[in-house]
Amino acid sequence: MSLLKLENVTKKFGGLTAVSDIGLTVEQGQIYSLIGPNGAGKTTLFNLVSSIFPVTSGRIFFDEKDITEVPTHALASLGIARTFQNLAVFKHETVVNNILVGLHSHLKADPFSAAVFWGRARNEEIRARERAEEIIEFLEIEELRDLPVGTLSYGQQKRVELGRALAVRPKLLLLDEMVSGMNQEEREEIGRFVLDLKEELGMTVFMVEHDMGIVMDISDHVCVMNHGAKIAEGTPDEVSNNSDVIDAYLGSRRKSA
């Protein structure tokens, strides 16, 4: 069953076509990776799915609903969460408070009960904090829960950002260069967490990634972009042996190695 479907999606900035006629389908429960060289249009495509940019033409469907024109702030309530290539955490707040921010879309109490912290508001707060603790335990950052995020290492901050996205309880998790800037041990840990999200929670993950080791190890399906267009897709093995991919992406990495 498809969870995310793009039909002939194109994005133009003036005379520049950044994304050209892209069609792809992310199935429920998949880890789907989007790869390609710098400037291929990967992050622009992610920004279209996230409604950060409007599409020039084409349609985007999520859970069989047309979300092409749904505003960014409404995506969380539909079940879509995203991390960003550049950290977007609240560095002066604690780990637990950063994760609680992600639960905001699930709070439904009226202003009065929220003001007096009674009834529904109190129950929602209790459940939110329980959920935050579950995420902290899942990500194995219990000892960091009360520390300001700005005092943590880069890899730990990325883990907190992932936790905040998980707080949305997403059906679809968008990961933009999740392991960028991490050391080998941190990359392997994130790869393990992403696999656990799929295998333990049944979550669907759509990720843009440059780390080919992570992509080939954990992906179910891979789509390759170059110059804004899709040039190949398939299993990791199929993609890694595709001559167009080798020329456009993998080959350039081998030559520079």
Rank of each mutant, 00 (worst) to 15 (best):
M1N: 03
S2C: 11
L4F: 12
L6E: 09
L6F: 04
V9F: 06
K11D: 01
K12E: 13
G15I: 06
T17V: 05
A18M: 10
V19K: 14
I22S: 00
L24S: 12
T25D: 15
V26T: 00
V26H: 00
E27I: 08
E27N: 15
Q28L: 09
G29M: 08
Q30P: 03
I31Q: 05
Y32T: 10
Y32P: 05
L34F: 07
L34I: 15
L34Q: 02
I35C: 08
P37I: 10
N38A: 09
G39Y: 15
T44Y: 06
T44E: 14
T44V: 13
L45T: 02
F46C: 03
V49W: 02
I52A: 13
F53A: 02
V55Q: 14
G58F: 06
G58D: 09
I60D: 09
K65M: 11
D66G: 15
E69M: 06
E69K: 14
V70Q: 13
V70F: 02
T72Q: 15
A74P: 00
A76Q: 07
A81R: 04
T83H: 11
T83C: 14
Q85T: 03
V89F: 01
V95F: 05
V95H: 08
L100F: 05
G102M: 02
L107F: 13
A109Y: 05
D110Q: 12
P111Q: 02
F112V: 07
F112W: 15
F112C: 01
A115I: 11
A115R: 12
F117S: 10
W118P: 00
A121V: 09
A128M: 12
R131K: 15
I135Q: 06
I136Q: 14
E137F: 00
F138T: 07
L139F: 07
E140Q: 14
L144F: 06
L144P: 00
G150C: 07
S153L: 01
R159W: 03
R159K: 15
L162Q: 08
L162R: 04
R164W: 07
R164M: 11
A165F: 09
R169M: 05
R169D: 15
P170R: 07
L172H: 12
L172Y: 12
L173N: 01
L173S: 01
D176W: 02
G181F: 03
N183F: 10
Q184D: 10
E188G: 10
E188L: 15
E189A: 07
L195G: 03
D196N: 14
L197P: 00
L197V: 09
E200A: 01
L201V: 00
L201S: 02
G202C: 05
M203Q: 01
G213D: 15
D217L: 09
S219A: 11
H221R: 05
I231Y: 06
I231C: 07
A232G: 06
G234Y: 05
T235L: 09
P236R: 11
V239Y: 03
V239I: 13
N241T: 08
D247C: 03
A248E: 08
Y249E: 12
Y249W: 08
G251Q: 08
S252G: 06
S256T: 10
A257F: 06
A257P: 00
